[in-house]
Each structure stands twice: as structure tokens, then as C-alpha cells.
Amino acid sequence: MTVAAHRGPETTVVPPWPLVRQVLHRSATSLRRIPAAIIPVIVMPVFFTVAFSGTFRGLTELPGYPTDNIYNWMVPYACLQTASFAALASAFGLGRDLESGFYDRLLLAPAPRWTVPTASVVWAMIRALLPLVITLSLGVVGGMTFPGGVVSAVWWLAVGAFAVAALGSLWGLGVMYRLKRQSAGGLVQIGLFVVMFLSVGTVPLELQEGWLPYVARWNPLTYILDMARCGFVGTCSWSDIWPGLLAIAVSAVLLGWWAERGWRKLVP
């Protein structure tokens, strides 16, 4: 439902993209102006890459580990982690806008209302780009290789990272629309962390023990990670990719529904 439907026939609905562009511009300006906001973008990729690759280097000594280069395994995981942080930051920003009343003013803009949440998702994806570049660069400096070819490896990694940013953002929208406060970002964070941890982040399914592989097998992120890693642990084949694309599609439908239901509670 558009604003025009509420406001009567004399109101003109402008095209959606100027509003999306303005919201994105405002988000980019906030990122520059708030030093605390830039820290996760710069520091977290460095931390994840160094910490995961340095701490867990010995995992490559496990029989059956898919690669002998820990960067090839951990850098894609770090990329997806930082993409989830982009989604988290987007959720925090939304919470701030909801608390301050800015969001109410956005909803009064004479553009289709769907452009407002769309801008949040798009911003999370754009924001994921910088940590992706930083993490990849660190990996290359550390000695990461591209056995599946540079283009293929980077392409599927980027698809995975942008998908995680978008899906995480949808999760964040759903939570924030329901709770309407910035502190609810903690809940968004817990959800993202749990999904990240309960996947094949550090070791593949075949080497996991106990209860974890049963959970990880049902976690969509497992398949998105497998897709994002395909060019770093071998050559990308369709069998590596389609489960990841399917996981993205199914998650997008479910999380989109979650966000849309929250949106309906906020804007009946």
C-alpha cells in the first residue's frame, strides 16, 4: 500500500529511486561522521582474518581437512562474518531512526513505502563491500591461493557475502520493526552469531563431531559458505553452487516474510 492511498487522490507519488538514493546517501554520510561506526567496517575484518587464520592454523593438520592453507578456508568465513556485521550495523541504524522519530518522517515521504526497507537492505549490501575487499586483500597478503581461478572464486565469494548482508538485514528489519528500539540490536546480533557458529565456519561437516553436524546440516549458511568457498578449496562445480543458491532463495523468502510481517505491525 502506498502513501498516496492514504493521502487521497491529489497526492503525487514520486518515483522510488530518489528516496532510496537519499537514504543511502544519508547512511554513507553517517558512516563517515560517526567514528564508532567505521570501526567494525575496518577493524573487524582485520580481526577475523588474523584471529581465525592465526588461532586455528593447526586445523589443517587434521586428516581430511579440505585445504592445507588455512587462509583459503578462513578468509571466506571472515568475509561472511563481516557481511553479517554490515547487516547488524544497518539494524542498529534502523533502531536509532525508529527511536529518534526520523523513520516516521521517512514514511511521510511521497514515495512508495517499500522503498524505505529496501534502502536498508541495499545499504547493508553496499556496506559489506568494503570489509569484503579488506578481508580478501589481507588473505592475499597472508598467502591465500585461488585454485578455482581468481574470477570464479571472488565471484561466488561476493555472491555469498552480499547474500548474507541482505539476509541478515531482513532478519534485522523484522526484529527492529517489532521491538522499535536500538537496544534490540543485541537480539539481531545473537541471531547472526548463532547462525554463523552453527555452520561449517571452522571445519567441514565431515570432521565435526557430536551434535553440531546435525544442526549444521540444516543451517542454510552451511551451503552458502560452501558456495562462497568453492573457488578457494578447489574448482567450482554446479554441485557446490546450487545448494547455496537454493539456501539463499529459501532464506530470502522466509526472512522476507519475517520482515514483511514486522513491517505490517509498524505500518498497518
Partner: peptide, 27 residues
């Protein structure tokens, strides 16, 4: 909010890492 994350997160991390990296004990 002060003590739940401080209790849940370490337990989660231990549960996940012990299951994911249990094989390291064989080295």
C-alpha cells in the same frame, strides 16, 4: 541483559568448538 550474554555466549562457543574441533584432541 548484564549476565545472560556473559553466560550464554561462552557456553555456546564451548559447545560449538568442542564439537567442531574435537578431532584436535587426537593430534
Amino acid at each position: 541483559s548484564s549476565w545472560v550474554p556473559a553466560t550464554v555466549f561462552p557456553l555456546l562457543l564451548v559447545a560449538v568448538n568442542s564439537s567442531a574441533m574435537g578431532g584436535v584432541a587426537n593430534i
